[in-house]
Write a protein that binds this DNA or RNA. Structure first.
Lengths: 220, 220
DNA sequence: AATAATTTTTAGACTTGTCTAAAATAATTT
DNA sequence: AAATTATTTTAGACAAGTCTAAAAATTATT
């Protein structure tokens, strides 16, 4: 069983490996808000425990084992975020620090029961996908509501919910249609409204609208 | 902010101070599953931070500040137990270790929201009383589950929960009825069973039974 | 009240995770 | 390709929390 500190390093490596394809000691140090020498120490320890492979001066990489464990930590983090927002009525922007603590609770049974209690959600309140108990992510082809997505990320509109005439008129007026490329620029928590960029123009939309527009992440 | 270890010591002192009126270093060491020398070290630290008062070789005691904090940890522990049993459907005997972890999560807001989400419960699944956000325990004039009461104190039975025929048969067999005078002689933590004196005779009852019998302190 | 037994504290060591400063290696520039 | 710069690692130190073994204080016994 890993310490919280070890888990945090593992998680940081996991998260960096999505954007960077070579993770340097300095990069990880910056991410972890620590010094390069501390990273080296920890990297040695994690490689001894075979969560990562490591060659001096040459860098490191998650092993299968490390990747699996990191996915489980991410799973816990995101499930707890869903709990905090859906059940305890926190705002989605308040929950990160609490989830950082909760993600280290050790009990597989707890995680699975929490997952069931929450209705096996596929995305957290920020729109990030939740790995299942085997570490498998939901297909990126799944649609979800516009108000649950990441900022500054391009999505494609895949559907709308409400079928009223008024709503279609609204969509038509602003040229919002299936296949449009859409990006959320800003979220306003006081009323859950969003500033979005749709194709080339910017606009604001209310929470009522954003919950009815379903999107899909653009896979490059 | 205290470390988990410091919080655990504080909680242990708090819990011991209910049964013992002088807490010795050795006693605390045994409770904490550690060595006397470690206890001395920690006791020094906690007294420097004024959570306890401490005189070498003379023992220690919680300060107001220490007692308040310990009550908040107990509050968190018991609220999480309610969550685990009521919402996630754990058995009451499975939840202790998980709650030991959850009780260290730092967020006053989380605790209060959890409390509301659970409907502001007054007792945990073991029947132990839950302090409110000010550290105040439910009034003694309120009916308690039998397993939450003080040892060697006379109570009157005010109600029973379960309405099954089997349960009433059991109560009748042992002449346990409304108004009976009842006293808990001993608690067995390993299974939460109790040795009780009911009117003039003694007997043992299981946790399942004790949680369903509600009593009230006899005020003379 | 002196001695023996017990309890508590101290002293020094070890582990984990961190740091600074210096040394080693790699990358870049001229 | 040699020199300069940047990155990474090592060496040694420190705080937290624990331990063992020895010393100090307290309590019990004769």
């Amino acid at each position: 069983m890993l310490s919280q500190s070890e888990e945090n390093y593992l998680k940081a490596i996991y998260s960096l490996s999505y954007t960077e394809d070579k993770i340097s000691t300095n990069l990880l140090a910056e991410k972890m808000n620590t010094k390069a020498s501390s990273v080296t120490d920890m990297v040695k320890k994690l490689s001894e425990k075979s969560y990562i492979t490591y060659l001096k001066y040459k860098g490191f990489e998650l092993t299968e084992k490390g990747s699996k464990l990191a996915a489980q930590i991410v799973r816990k983090h995101r499930l707890w975020e869903v709990f905090l927002v859906d059940k305890l009525k926190f705002g989605w922007e308040e929950v990160h620090d609490i989830a950082e603590q909760l993600e280290h609770i050790q009990s597989k049974q707890l995680t699975d029961k929490l997952d069931d209690f929450l209705g096996n959600p596929k995305f957290d309140p920020h729109g990030d996908p939740i790995p299942d108990k085997n570490g498998v992510y939901p297909s990126l082809k799944v649609s979800f509501p516009l108000n649950a997505i990441e900022l500054n990320t391009i999505y494609t509109i895949t559907g709308v919910e409400d079928g009223s005439m008024d709503f279609f008129q609204f969509l038509k007026r602003y040229e919002i249609g299936l296949g449009s490329e859409i990006k959320v620029l800003e979220k306003f928590p006081f009323d859950d409204s969003l500033r979005i960029q749709i194709d080339q123009s910017e606009m604001n939309i209310s929470a009522i609208v954003s919950k009815k527009i379903f999107v899909q992440k653009v896979i490059e």
